[in-house]
């Protein structure tokens, strides 16, 4: 096959795939600010759909942000020391624990949610609160934080750095705070972005765990897709994109930086 033709075919195919992914996103964003989507953009642009979304769903947006932030705090406090511990212990036990905490990724969210409901569904106030959703999000996102930090720990010689700090008089706690944590910052950052992004978009677990009073953004989205006109659903999706796309872009930039530094 001539080189040029082969290039053109592959290029067209790749463009087609890209269009498949990006076109609906663009159209939906457009729909969210179009007066009447059925009549097209010529019907005029408007912010009224977004305002209406805010009036209808502000609580879900705020709840999702608070939930994502709280999930992040929990995974940081629990996950970073745990990643350090697992790295230090090493061997079979560490692998087993890592395997168990990674299981929530292998088991469908629906099953985990069901398990949580069966176990804790009876305790009314916990079941009714956002904390019930928080627990699900923490379990689901924890492996991303732990593994992201462990990956960085594995790439730097942290035990020698620690010995260095110890030889200069630092206690275990001081070593952890002044040497370990600052040097795994890239892992913490990557893990944090992942945790926040996943928590903001989590639906499988949340749909089962939520109550009418603890709706999150994706739950609200599913609601609006089922019962609202296309423009409102689109405007709501637009709000979600505005929240999540910067996080995704930040992740891409971090990924590129990492692959560059690992090459040099």
């Amino acid at each position: 096959m001539p080189r040029k033709l082969s290039f053109t075919l592959q290029f067209s195919f790749t463009i087609l795939v890209a269009l498949f992914l990006i076109l609906p996103a663009i159209m939906s964003m457009l729909a969210g600010i179009t007066t009447n989507y059925a009549r097209g953009v010529s019907s005029g642009l408007t912010a009224s759909w977004i305002i209406e979304v805010w009036n209808l769903y502000a609580d879900t947006i705020v709840r999702s942000l608070v939930l994502a932030f709280t999930t992040l705090v929990c995974t940081l406090l629990v996950g970073v020391p745990a990643a350090y511990a697992l790295h230090t212990i090493g061997g079979r036990i560490a692998r087993l624990i890592e395997e168990v905490i990674t299981l929530p990724l292998a088991i469908p969210g629906l099953a985990i949610a069901l398990a949580l409901i069966i176990t804790y569904g009876g305790s009314g106030s916990f079941r009714q609160s956002s904390a019930f959703i928080l627990v699900g999000h923490v379990v689901f996102t924890m492996p991303f934080m732990v593994r992201s930090v462990m990956a960085v720990l594995g790439s730097i010689d942290v035990s020698t750095l620690e010995e260095g700090a110890a030889s200069l008089g630092a206690s275990r706690w001081q070593r952890f705070i002044t040497v370990v944590v600052p040097n795994v910052r890239p892992g913490i950052l990557a893990g944090s972005l992942m945790v926040v992004t996943l928590s903001l978009g989590e639906f499988n677990l949340t749909w089962m765990l939520h109550t009418p009073l603890t709706k999150t953004l994706p739950v609200g989205l599913a609601d609006s897709y089922a019962s609202m006109r296309l423009e409102i659903a689109s405007a709501y999706t637009l709000v979600f994109f505005v929240m999540i796309v910067p996080l995704l872009v930040a992740m891409q930039i971090m990924g590129q930086k990492q692959s560059r530094s690992s090459k040099s």
Binding site: G79, A82, I97, I112, I118
Partner: peptide, 22 residues
């Protein structure tokens, strides 16, 4: 090291391992 690991064991044990057994 145990102290570093404990919060994770509690979290995962209480909110994942136990529910899955249930």
């Amino acid at each position: 090291v145990g102290l570093c690991l404990l919060p994770l064991l509690i979290t995962v044990g209480l909110f994942f391992v136990l529910p899955v057994f249930q």
